[in-house]
Simulated assay, not measured.
Amino acid sequence: MRRFILGSIVAAVIGLLLAGAGYWAYWNFYSRFQPVTISRNPAEVQRLLDEASWVSDGSGGQPLYIVTYRDSASGHRYLRDEAPKLKAAGVETRFILFARPDADGASRSTTAERATVAELWLSRDWPLYERWMATPSGSWTAAGLPQADGNLARSAVVEAGRRFDEQLSRMLRASGVKISYPLILWRDRDGFLKACGCADSRAWAFIRDDVGAPDRLGGPTGAVPPLDEDQAAPEDGTPAMPYPDLPTIPPMNAPPNGPAAAPPAQVQNPTPAPTRPAAPSARPSSRAAPTPTQQEDTTFY
């Protein structure tokens, strides 16, 4: 009885450990990367997004908002790897940039970054955004742009971007969103507003599933498309030259510069063998034996 009780306790402990390990694995590898449906004040969150000065290529389609700052490594990876897939699915990516506030007296943004953020919020210049993202952060000087520092109006625009990020983060935390950048918001197929702190790339697949974006773009590498006959013809309408007749290529095992092969021997018709005469159809009849006769005695003198 005692052994049975000890075995039951050990089995129960092992079962609890396995259940806990399974739940932890589910949470660690899947659940914690799922997007969060905005359950508190979704209309206020949407209004805040609509009032922000986002930039876009103007392609139209279902909007998807990406809130980030210039030096976010995850934001750059998302722009490089996921934005083309979203565009292929008819999604319009709207970028909202802000300059991070100072922390402990240390500035976390540069003068050129603040000037560019102010210009983007005021003009929504998409080519400017593309040039900014294509240039390394240390090489960007914001040449030709008015400085935000020392400019009361443009400094207020930079501060407005920071207040937008603070207010949005506070509202999303109330719904259980863990804030990390890029911070992405969109509506799923049922129209519910969702949000994701998508610093980890394992969360990106959930967004693609919601908006119907492909996991990969293009066909297999190295495939050569077939050439169309119309494309093969010259543009001026000149008919294509015929392909010349070339001699037959000798086999690979033929010796180079070897003697010419002997001509094939003439085939002679074989002499027909003499035919054997056919046997007579009937054997000749045999003669009858002579009948013996008796002669008279004759006397000789």
Rank of each mutant, 00 (worst) to 15 (best):
Y78W: 15
R2K: 14
M171D: 09
T68F: 02
Q34S: 10
R124A: 11
R187S: 09
D236W: 02
S281T: 11
R40W: 04
G15S: 09
T68W: 03
T111A: 15
A118S: 04
S53P: 07
S169C: 05
A282C: 05
P214M: 06
A260P: 11
T116K: 01
G176Q: 02
P270K: 05
T141W: 05
P63Q: 03
Q268F: 12
Y301V: 15
D71G: 11
P274V: 06
G22W: 11
R287C: 10
G212N: 01
R276Y: 10
D228R: 08
D71L: 09
S286A: 15
R189W: 02
F95V: 15
D230L: 07
M1Q: 11
S286Y: 11
P242S: 07
W121Q: 05
R283F: 12
A233E: 06
Q62V: 07
S107A: 12
W27G: 05
S180V: 01
P244R: 01
Q294F: 10
T291K: 14
T291A: 12
D57C: 03
S59V: 07
E130D: 09
G61Q: 03
D200P: 03
A156N: 05
A73G: 10
S180T: 04
N257Y: 11
P239S: 05
D190Q: 11
A213N: 03
N41R: 09
D165E: 13
S137L: 13
S59I: 09
K194R: 13
P244T: 03
A89K: 04
A12S: 11
L128G: 00
P256A: 13
I9V: 14
T110M: 06
F4D: 10
A233K: 07
E166G: 07
K85F: 06
A160L: 04
A174C: 05
D165T: 07
Q62L: 09
N41G: 06
S123K: 15
A205V: 13
P247W: 05
P256T: 10
I96P: 00
R100I: 06
